[in-house]
């Protein structure tokens, strides 16, 4: 596990530029397929949200020209991509590298908040529940994408490994998350 760094790596600029022009609907469809898989594979993560499973979370990667509205809907999650802020109960904003690093256990969420790399607004309890639920689930987003990639799995693995090496961004989980 890496230490919490003095500086969060900077995500490359080109995905943001590409997103400015790209239609969001196909990406949103892919993201919804992805979170449906997360709901199937990690039902406890959604149970941990408790009453906050019905809230709307706006996740704002500040280096991308989109916001992600995540509605856990108590285990039937929905994701909406938008170019401007949406009605929400809680908002979490920060560099994409910080958000991904937190999901993958590379950074401590509280430390990112204390250092103001992350900004939270709105329903603080809902943010805390989401953070705790994701932390407990020990997600590996790259592994989940690879599982959806079918025969292209090997290629996706290689792309993720190369991108991680080039950028320093925690795109996958490195701490041993396997059973005891």
């Amino acid at each position: 596990m890496s230490e919490t760094p003095d500086q969060i790596p900077i995500f490359p600029l080109w995905p943001g530029r590409a997103l400015r022009l790209a239609p969001l609907r196909p990406l949103q469809l892919g993201l919804n397929r992805f979170v449906a898989r997360l709901a199937r594979e990690h039902p406890k993560m959604f149970r941990r949200l408790g009453e906050h499973g019905a809230k709307r979370f706006e996740i704002d990667p500040v280096d991308l020209p989109v916001v992600i509205l995540l509605e856990p809907r108590e285990g039937a999650p929905r994701v909406t991509l938008a170019r401007a802020t949406q009605p929400h109960d809680a908002r979490i904003a920060g560099p994409l590298a910080a958000l991904l690093g937190m999901v993958h256990g590379a950074y401590d969420g509280d430390a990112l908040f204390f250092s103001r790399d992350l900004v939270i607004e709105g329903d603080t309890a809902a943010v805390l529940a989401l953070r705790n639920a994701i932390d407990a689930a020990e997600l590996d987003l790259a592994a989940e994408i690879e599982a959806l990639a079918g025969p292209a799995r090997g290629m996706v693995e290689r792309i993720v490994a190369l991108a991680e090496k080039r950028t320093g961004v925690a795109l996958t989980r490195h701490e041993e998350a396997e059973a005891w």
């Binding site: 596990m1 256990g105 590379a106 401590d108 509280d110 805390l128 705790n132 932390d135 701490e175």
Partner: peptide, 10 residues
């Protein structure tokens, strides 16, 4: 106890 796995580990 309210901190992350990353914190606990470090």
């Amino acid at each position: 106890r309210q901190r992350s796995v990353s914190y606990v580990s470090q």
